[in-house]
C-alpha cells in the first residue's frame, strides 16, 4: 500500500487488551510520524511492553486496530505478518540473543532471512552494525560471555542490521549502569540521525525520555494519560506526572 508523507508510520486505534481477568490496555490511541521518536512512559505493569508487542503483532488485541504505514496488521495471519515484521525491528528487554549462535551469527541471521546470500555483503553489514555499537572484535563471542550492557548493544546491532524503517525499544536501559545507559541513549539518538528511523521507546527511565524523545506518551491505568512534547511534560503540574518524573511514591513517610 502506498503511504503519503502524512500517513503516520505507526498508528494504534482504540487498542484494548485483556490478559486473563485483567484489562491491561483500555483503549490506547497512538500515532507516530515518519522519523519521529515517541517515548512511552509509565510505571511498571501499566501495559507499555504489551502495547509494544501489539505494534509488531507478537500479541493480538482484544479489540482495536494497529496500522503500519497505513496497512492494517491486526487480523493478518502469521505468514503474511513476516513481511510487515521485516519493516519493524524490535530490541527486546532481555536483548533475546540466540544463545546457540555467536555474535556474528546472531547479526547475520536477519540478513540471511532477508535472502542475502553473498557472504561478503553479510560480513560488511555485520561489521558496520557492530561498529555502530562500538563492539568490533566481539564477532566470535557467545552471548553468555557478554555483560548485560554488551548484550543490549549486540541486540541493538541485530535490530538495525536488517535496516528496518521502524525500531521498537523495550526498556533499552533497564538494569544497566548509568554510564552504559547513557551510551545506549546516545546510540538511539545517533541511529535516528544516521538512518532516520521511526522509533517507539518504552521506558521508565526519565533520562532516556528527555534525551531521545520527540514526543512523549504517558500511560496510566491502561490509557493514554498525557501526550505532548518533552517540554510540555516538564511543565506539567499534574500530580500523577510530577510524581513519576521526580520518582515520588506518594506514600507519607
Amino acid at each position: 500500500m502506498s503511504s503519503s508523507p502524512e500517513t503516520p508510520v505507526i498508528e494504534v486505534q482504540a487498542l484494548k487488551k485483556r490478559l486473563g481477568t485483567q484489562d491491561v490496555l483500555r483503549g490506547v490511541d497512538l500515532q507516530v510520524r515518519r522519523g519521529e521518536t515517541c517515548v512511552v512512559l509509565g510505571r511498571s505493569g501499566c501495559g507499555k511492553s504489551v502495547l509494544l508487542k501489539h505494534i509488531i503483532a507478537l500479541m493480538r488485541p482484544t479489540s482495536g486496530r494497529v496500522l503500519i504505514e497505513g496497512e492494517e496488521i491486526t487480523g493478518l495471519p502469521e505468514r503474511q505478518l513476516l513481511d510487515v515484521r521485516r519493516k519493524v525491528g524490535m530490541l527486546f528487554q532481555s536483548a533475546a540473543l540466540f544463545d546457540s549462535m555467536t555474535v556474528e551469527q546472531n547479526l547475520a541471521f536477519p540478513l540471511k532471512e532477508q535472502g542475502i546470500r553473498d557472504p561478503k555483503v553479510i560480513k560488511e553489514r555485520v561489521t558496520e552494525a557492530l561498529d555502530m555499537v562500538d563492539l568490533l572484535g566481539a564477532e566470535s563471542k557467545m552471548p553468555e560471555k557478554l555483560s548485560g550492557g554488551m548484550r543490549k548493544r549486540v541486540g541493538l546491532a541485530r535490530t538495525v542490521v536488517g535496516r528496518p524503517r521502524c525500531i521498537l525499544y523495550d526498556e533499552p536501559t533497564t538494569g544497566l549502569d548509568p554510564i552504559t545507559s547513557d551510551s545506549i541513549n546516545r546510540l538511539i539518538r545517533r541511529l535516528q540521525k544516521r538512518i532516520s528511523v521511526t522509533s517507539v521507546v518504552v521506558t521508565h527511565d526519565m533520562k532516556t525520555a528527555f534525551h531521545c524523545g520527540d514526543s512523549i506518551v504517558f500511560l496510566h491505568e491502561g490509557r493514554v494519560y498525557f501526550q505532548g512534547t518533552v517540554d510540555q511534560l516538564r511543565a506539567s503540574t499534574d500530580p500523577v506526572i510530577t510524581d513519576f518524573i521526580e520518582g515520588r511514591s506518594g506514600d507519607a513517610d
Partner: peptide, 13 residues
C-alpha cells in the same frame, strides 16, 4: 528468554 518472540520479530516462523 524471548528468543522465540525474537524469531517472530525477525520475520521467522
Amino acid at each position: 528468554t524471548e528468543q522465540i518472540d525474537a524469531l517472530r520479530a525477525l520475520g521467522v516462523q
